[in-house]
């Protein structure tokens, strides 16, 4: 219990630090929000173009897909707020040998490396995503129960943890090859399909991205819970199960990778 309190105090300090940092680059802070908003708008634009060609994709109607794109963006923005910058910075820490400093501190290194910087702009963008979701839900005249809300929120947390576990594994590859610029690229390509309706996919592709890399579940399942589209309880069981599996693999991978760390010559 003492330990948890210590970590909470520590995390509060990291937050303060991030706020100070963002305040000193106000213009840039606002511009990044604009960038993310534009890309979000682009995805919504794509949905409206798609549905000018068809009435539904599988059983997904236009506003259900807007809900899906919104939820997908919501999960991605929250993940970005807490973890993304830290994951992409990991290779820099290894390359420059700054990792030494973090290893020496009397705190769990993975905690520090994963949560050091908070991206505050992403919270603003997550809020925009919520607005879009509320709008879509109104269009669909959805009236979710408290249970559905709780289920949705819990599954979003699982989704964020899956984003984090997969990205963290990608990031720890930098212990093997120092030049790991392709990581973010790989991540974005992988999670690009999270906002697509699962019913558009079949066969091996669907199986791989459901059971091995559960990208097709991370936003589809929460939205199905919210929109009364859940086909069987197995969907969220798979999501939670595969999520737990990746969390364990990520921790294991981190421990092995850390053993390879030799520090940069200084």
């Amino acid at each position: 219990m003492m330990n948890l309190k210590r970590y909470l105090i520590l995390y509060a300090e990291l937050w303060k630090n991030s706020v100070t940092r963002e305040i000193s680059f106000k213009g840039n802070f606002l511009l990044w929000i604009v960038v993310e908003l534009l890309w979000f708008g682009l995805q919504l634009c794509f949905v409206s173009v798609l549905y000018s060609q068809t009435k539904s994709i599988g059983t997904w109607t236009q506003w259900e897909m807007v809900l899906l794109v919104g939820a997908s963006n919501f999960i991605q923005q929250l993940y970005q707020a807490f973890f993304l910058t830290n994951c992409t910075n990991l290779s820099e820490l290894v390359r420059t040998g700054k990792m030494d400093f973090f290893l020496l501190l009397p705190v769990n290194t993975r905690f520090l490396v994963s949560l050091r910087v908070v991206d505050l702009g992403a919270f603003v963008n997550a809020l925009f995503a919520v607005c879009v979701m509320i709008f879509a839900a109104t269009k669909l005249s959805l009236h979710p129960t408290v249970g559905q809300f709780v289920g949705f929120a819990a599954l979003c947390v699982v989704g964020i943890m899956i984003h984090y576990s997969l990205m963290f594994i990608l990031a720890t590859i930098c212990f093997w090859t120092v030049r790991a610029q392709g990581i973010v690229w790989g991540y974005y390509n992988l999670f690009n399909i999270a906002r697509m309706p699962d019913e558009a996919f079949h066969g091996v592709f669907k199986a791989v991205f459901t059971f091995a890399l559960p990208v097709l579940l991370v936003s589809n399942v929460p939205v199905r819970v919210l929109a009364d589209k859940i086909y069987s309880p197995s969907a969220w069981l798979i999501l939670v199960g595969v999520g737990a599996m990746w969390a364990v693999i990520a921790e294991w991978f981190w421990r092995i990778s850390l053993r390879r760390y030799t520090s940069a010559s200084s």
Binding site: W185, N189, N192, A200, F201
Partner: peptide
């Protein structure tokens, strides 16, 4: 990696 979204 770019084949994933393309295929999708």
């Amino acid at each position: 990696f770019s084949f994933i979204p393309l295929f999708a």
